[in-house]
């Protein structure tokens, strides 16, 4: 039986640190994707994800409805992403030209080299935020549609409509390149 997020959150509040590890296992991939949307860099996305979960742990007692852990966490990730972008802009202003960006990891490079993946990633970055998030949720969360739609505050049918729209857009982008699955 799958333990709900709500039960895990209550577990964390009762001092069960393993419950928080389980929450991390469930949601870290999605949060990395959300952070990647802000940074366009996997290394930074991984770092920001750690920050997101640290803030979540510190602030978990703020969460009024434990069942809404996932949307709450996504909200933190979006805020952390915004703060990161702001800090980057400030840094660029003060030390223009000196900034060293982390190099893409081997996995990142490999995935960029794979046909279609880079095109997809580019296409995804141009999607409206809601559609991008719907796609992330669909591919990265191990949960049913009922929970997934809750993150986007959509009806079940609305969630699938958004997904269908996303996939139409991505298909158009992919149709421009030859892909070898």
């Amino acid at each position: 039986m799958i333990v709900s997020d709500s039960t895990l959150v209550n577990g964390v509040l009762s001092g069960d640190r393993e419950a928080f590890a389980e929450l991390y296992n469930r949601h870290a991939r999605l949060i990395r994707a959300v952070c990647y949307d802000a940074t366009h860099n996997l290394t930074w996305a991984a770092d920001l994800t750690q920050e997101v979960f640290l803030r979540a742990f510190r602030g978990i007692s703020d969460l009024r409805d434990p069942a809404r852990f996932a949307p709450w966490l996504v909200g933190i990730a979006r805020q952390v992403g915004r703060e990161w972008r702001r800090a980057q802009r400030r840094q660029r202003r003060t030390i223009a030209g000196l900034q060293q960006e982390p190099q893409p990891t081997a996995v990142e490079e490999a995935s960029r080299d794979a046909d279609g993946v880079h095109v997809l990633r580019e296409a995804i970055t141009r999607l409206p935020e809601k559609e991008r998030l719907a796609l992330h949720v669909f591919y990265l969360l191990q949960m049913d549609a009922e929970q997934a739609r809750g993150i986007l505050e959509l009806s079940r049918s609305g969630f699938y409509r958004v997904l269908s729209r996303v996939r139409r857009r991505l298909r158009r982008a992919l149709s421009k390149v030859e892909v070898h699955p």
């Binding site: 991939r29 999605l30 990395r32 994707a33 990647y36 996997l42 996305a45 996995v107 990142e108 995935s111 794979a114 046909d115 279609g116 993946v117 997809l120 990633r121 995804i124 796609l135 992330h136 591919y139 990265l140 991505l170 992919l174 892909v179 699955p181």
Partner: peptide, 10 residues
């Protein structure tokens, strides 16, 4: 297939 591959990096 491409989406699944892309999301593996996370």
């Amino acid at each position: 297939a491409a989406l699944i591959r892309m999301y593996e990096v996370f």
